[in-house]
Design a protein around this nucleic acid. Structure first.
Lengths: 104, 104
DNA sequence: CCGAAAAGTAATCCGTCACGTGACACACGT
DNA sequence: ACGTGTGTCACGTGACGGATTACTTTTCGG
């Protein structure tokens, strides 16, 4: 059966920027500017990502996946968890007012 | 091991709007306006979704998942496939210019 | 038939967001 | 002291989800 998880999780999921900051940058010995150049984006893009002020876009996910040898999906999964968490918090009551069709 | 799929897929992945139009609407006997009202959004939002002119947002995914009894991830997975496909087509050469760190 | 209600769609406005550029301040090493 | 690199802010741009409004087409009851 499909797990529903209608409740959503308690705490905000880990932001990809945190993963980058805590794990990837130290592990690879990269600086912000260095990463920016390696990815072919501006320093600000990386900076805002690390500060968790910007989401990982599909384009950015492609770049990150390419550089670090993992899939774009890896980065977008983390981002999606955040997006869903934020969206759920924002329109929680709206969504709960929707009557599931199965349960008729 | 992590499968890489660096090549990307040949044809454009199925748009969530197509799934709605071809499968969900007929199966549940819903009209566009009916779906819009059931979800609590405007008719245009649904209309543009069905015509594949708009992406499934996290908010919309929450609504759809709630109404149809499946997960928001289901809808966002389909959307992400499209987003990645489009992004890859757009910045393919840019990404390929990035040197993977592992492969040194 | 015909007129009204419902459904599809186009146009417009608004808020948000990823991204680049330019500028600024603060280090730290030579 | 100077210059290089790094963190950050301010601004402009283009794209996009969404609502509202209005116009067109279809459908259906009398």
């Amino acid at each position: 059966m499909a797990i529903q998880n209608t409740g959503g999780m308690q705490r905000r999921p880990t932001h990809p920027g945190e993963m980058l900051r805590e794990d990837f940058l130290p592990d690879y010995g990269l600086t912000v500017a260095g990463l920016a150049e390696a990815l072919g984006v501006s320093r600000q893009s990386i900076n805002e990502l690390l500060r968790e002020r910007r989401a990982v876009s599909p384009e950015m996910a492609l770049r990150l996946g390419r550089l670090f040898g993992n899939s774009p999906e890896f980065w977008l999964n983390a981002q999606r968890a955040i997006d869903l968490w934020v969206a759920a918090a924002a329109i929680k009551d709206e969504v709960e007012r929707i009557k599931p069709l199965d349960a008729a």
